[in-house]
Amino acid sequence: MKLRNIPHLIGQGFVSFWRNGAMTTAAILVLICCMLVLGSFYVVIDNLDKFIEDQSESIKTINAYVDGSESDEAVNAKELMLFELSKMENSNIDHYVRITKAEALEDMKNREGLEDVLSKFDESNNPLPETFRIHFKDIDSVQSLMRDLEEIFGADMIKSEVAMYESVNDISTTITLVGLWLMLILLVIAILIIMNTVKLTVFARRKDIAIMRYIGATSTFVVSPFIVEGILIGVVAAIISTGIQYYLYTEVFADIAAGYSAISLVPALDYLYIIPVAFLAIGLFAGIVASATSVKKHLDV
C-alpha cells in the first residue's frame, strides 16, 4: 500500500461511518447500552464496597477499660506503657483516645433513649470506667496487639469488635470478588454483542468488499477503512456513554442515595479516569477486533 493512500483510507473510514447511518447508529447504540450496564454495575459495586469499608473502619477499635479502684498514678503509668507501645517501630496502633469517666458518662447521656436512665448518675456515682479506645491498623496482626494490651490492662479489661470487623470484612471481600466476576462475565457478553453488531454492519457491505477485491484492492486497502470506522464507532460510543453515565450517577444515583442517610456516594470525579478510559478501551477493542476479523472473512474473492 502506498503512503499517499493513508489519508484517503482514513477519510474513507469517516465517509463510511457517516453514510452507513443506520448500521453505524445500531452499533453505537448497542455499544452504549453495554457500556452503561457495565459502568453502572461498576459504580454500584464500588460504592457498596466503599460503604462497607467505611463502616468497618469505624469498628476497627479495641477498648481497654480501667478498674475504678485504681489510682490516677496507676492509670497514668498504663497510659505511658500504651504510648510507648504505639510509638514502637511497626506498631499496629494507629492512634488511641483516653476517655475519662466523665466523658464516657456525657457521651452515654447524649445517646438517644439513654438520657432518662442515666439522668440519676453524676460525677459522684458515675458507674462507667475510664477507657482507652485504641484504633488499630492491620487486622491480620491484631492478636499480637491484643496480647500486648492484655499485659498492660489485664485480660478481662479488653473488649474488641475484631470478630465483627472480620465478618464485615469478609462480606466486603465476597462482594468485591462476586462483583469482579460478574463484571468480567458482563464484559465478555458486552464485547460479544458489540462484535456481532459490527459483524452485521460488515456483512451488509460484503458486496462492496467483493467489488474492491475485483478491482485490485489489497487486503490492507480493504480492511483499513473498516478499522477506522470501528475506531470511530468505539470513540463516539465511549464519549456518549461517559456523558450519560455521568448524568445517571450525579442525578439518578444521587437521588436514590439521598433516600438513605447512611449512604454517601463516592464523588463522581473519582471516576474521572477509570470510566472514560474503560469505555474507550472496550469501544476500541470491540470496534477494531470485530471490524478486522469480520472483514477478513469476506476478503476471499
Binding site: 500500500m1 502506498k2 499517499r4 493512500n5 484517503h8 463510511s16 453514510r19 452507513n20 458486496k207 462492496d208 467483493a210 467489488i211 474492491m212 475485483y214 478491482i215 485490485g216 484492492a217 486497502f221
Partner: peptide, 23 residues
C-alpha cells in the same frame, strides 16, 4: 458492481486510488 454509497465520480476515482494514483 458499482459502489452504491459512492457517487459516479467517486466510483471511477476509487479504482485509481486502489493503485495509489496521485490526487
Amino acid at each position: 458492481r458499482l459502489f452504491p454509497n459512492m457517487t459516479v465520480y467517486e466510483n471511477v476515482a476509487f479504482a485509481m486510488r486502489v493503485v495509489g494514483e496521485k490526487n
